[in-house]
Simulated scan of single mutants.
Amino acid sequence: MSDIKLTLVVACALIDADRRVLIAQRPAGKAMAGLWEFPGGKLEPGERPEATLIRELHEEIGITVKEACLAPLTFASHAYDDFHLLMPLYICRRWEGQVIAREGQNLAWVRANKLRDYPMPPADIPLIPYLTDLLM
């Protein structure tokens, strides 16, 4: 067996009152720049996925989320060339504050059946049917 680097990233599908999902465009200079993804990020050592999301959602888009408002929906497992990504996807319908782009990224509120209109990293694409089933 080869030593494959396993990367654990957690993502969140924020769902607004109109049943739209928030996606963010990866900024220039980052890997996969220009592609759209669900907000979230890498776990810090010793950090639980829910704590990561609470921290990342505050850092990236300025909102405050309570752990009780995060519900696991599904996960992605995707083999990239140089690492394997494992990504739990949570949904969140309640938060405090206004969604704002704090890291220079573009944001879009999108209906689930329109998510495929936005180019996404390969790991994110298999998550779309779960959101479509949930929201349509």
Rank of each mutant, 00 (worst) to 15 (best):
T7H: 08
R111N: 11
D81R: 14
I125Q: 08
P45A: 07
E67P: 06
I15H: 00
A11K: 04
E56M: 08
N106I: 10
L73N: 01
K42H: 05
L14I: 01
R19Y: 12
E96A: 14
I100D: 09
A33W: 10
A112G: 04
G40R: 07
L14D: 05
T52I: 08
I128C: 03
E96L: 13
A24R: 12
V9C: 09
T64C: 07
E60T: 09
I23R: 03
E44Y: 11
F75S: 14
N106V: 12
K5E: 15
A76L: 02
S2M: 14
L115M: 01
I54F: 01
I4D: 02
T52Y: 01
L35Y: 07
K114V: 06
V110E: 03
K114L: 12
L73T: 04
C12L: 04
I91K: 00
M32H: 09
P129K: 06
E96K: 13
I63T: 09
A31H: 11
A79R: 15
Y90S: 05
K30T: 15
P39C: 11
P121K: 13
G97Y: 07
A17F: 03
L14S: 02
D81F: 11
G34V: 06
I125L: 11
P72A: 08
W95D: 10
H84R: 13
P122M: 11
D3V: 14
R116E: 11
R102E: 10
R102S: 10
L8D: 08
E96S: 14
M136P: 05
L73Q: 02
Q105F: 08
V99H: 06
D82F: 15
E60Y: 08
E56Q: 10
D82K: 15
A79G: 10
G97D: 09
A24P: 04
I23F: 07
P27L: 02
K42F: 07
R48Y: 04
L127V: 03
A76E: 07
I15C: 01
M87L: 07
I61C: 02
R48H: 10
P49K: 05
E50Q: 15
I100L: 11
E59G: 04
A13N: 01
L22S: 01
P88E: 08
R93C: 14
R116Q: 12
A11W: 01
A17H: 06
C69A: 15
M1N: 07
L127W: 06
G40I: 02
W95N: 10
A11Y: 02
E44C: 10
N106C: 13
H78P: 06
W36H: 00
Y90W: 12
L127H: 00
G97V: 06
A76C: 08
N113D: 15
I91W: 03
A123L: 05
L131T: 00
A112K: 01
L131H: 03
T52L: 00
